[in-house]
Amino acid sequence: MKASDMRFALILPFLALPAFADVQTALDDHILPGYTRLADETAKLAEAAQADCTPDALQPAFHAAYDAWISISHIHFGPLEDQAVTLTMSFWPDPKNSTGKALARLTTAADPIVDQPEAFGDVSAAAQGFTALERMLYDPQPDADYACRLTQAIATGLAQKSDSLNAAWPAFADQMLSAGTGGNARFQSDMEAQRALYTALSAGLEFLHDQRLGRPLGTFDRPRPSRAEARRSERSLRHIELQLAALERLAAAMTNADLGATSAAFAEARARADALEDPALQGVADAEQRFKVEVLQQAVRAVQVAVIDEIGTPLGVTAGFNALDGD
């Protein structure tokens, strides 16, 4: 070996090498357990609904299952996309009140489809999922008997869909881990699997900034508190906190890079969220409270910038097609 080549070889270990998206860790520590938890909690929800469908009795199981969904819902690729159940899990944003209208149609007609579990999946997506179930548990219902049956149908549907998603994930995980091997048409290179993770992280942050915070904020002259997600159950802020925590876990799992700026940005965003004390984000119409929500939104933007700098750029990955565009 030439002296110059030897010097180059000695220098290499000290050069800053690109970070690699750790697909295995992201799957084992975040995605697979997240979908297993969702299946477990929705199964408990369906069981609880059959035992006692009254709102007071069912709300604890509803909150536990909803927590599980929000904590993994940013993983839009894979079985969730393949089975096309995103909207039937949670129909939000809902600018046209499609959920309220769909539930009213079922209730007014006392539609017997609620007693047919296999057929219920064919009703409007807006009448299924967590957003519909929230209406059943937190809005007055004109017909208690039918409301009970509809509540049970929604809870059962959530459990069925969640179980199907959880059952499909191990095989999809194998596809991600075998990226670039012969016969894998889904992921033809390691970069494609890495890009799927990075897009989920990027899109999750964008959804948090633009939808969960941006929709209720509206404009200064026209705030939109009624557009806050899950405001009836006062979960709006909780969804923001859960999503921040979940996205931070995903970021930490998917790279071996030093995430100093990203970790600091997440910590700042979480601190801003903790300081809000406005569970349904109804304070956006008040100047002082609105300012706090705007600062939180700015903190989320700082997380986005840090993620690009510390994860996206070193990986040479940019976010792919965002399935949330146009919502």
Rank of each mutant, 00 (worst) to 15 (best):
D52K: 10
I72F: 09
Q59F: 12
K44E: 10
Q59N: 10
P55W: 05
S71T: 10
A46I: 01
T54V: 06
Q59P: 00
L58Q: 10
S71D: 11
H63A: 08
A48L: 05
S71A: 14
A61C: 06
H74V: 09
D56A: 15
L45N: 06
D67R: 13
E41S: 10
A64Y: 02
A61I: 01
D52H: 10
F62W: 09
A48H: 07
P60Y: 11
F62R: 07
A46N: 08
E41C: 01
P55H: 08
H63Y: 14
E41T: 12
Y66Q: 07
P60D: 06
D40Q: 15
P55L: 02
A48Q: 13
A49D: 05
S71F: 01
C53E: 11
A48N: 09
C53F: 07
A43N: 15
Y66M: 04
A48M: 04
S71L: 03
S71K: 12
H74Q: 15
Y66K: 11
H63G: 01
H63C: 00
I70P: 00
A46M: 03
Q59W: 12
D67C: 02
P60C: 05
D52C: 05
E47P: 01
A61M: 04
D56I: 04
A48E: 04
A49Y: 12
Y66L: 08
D40S: 12
S73M: 10
A43R: 13
A46W: 04
I70M: 14
A51D: 11
W69G: 01
D56V: 04
P55R: 11
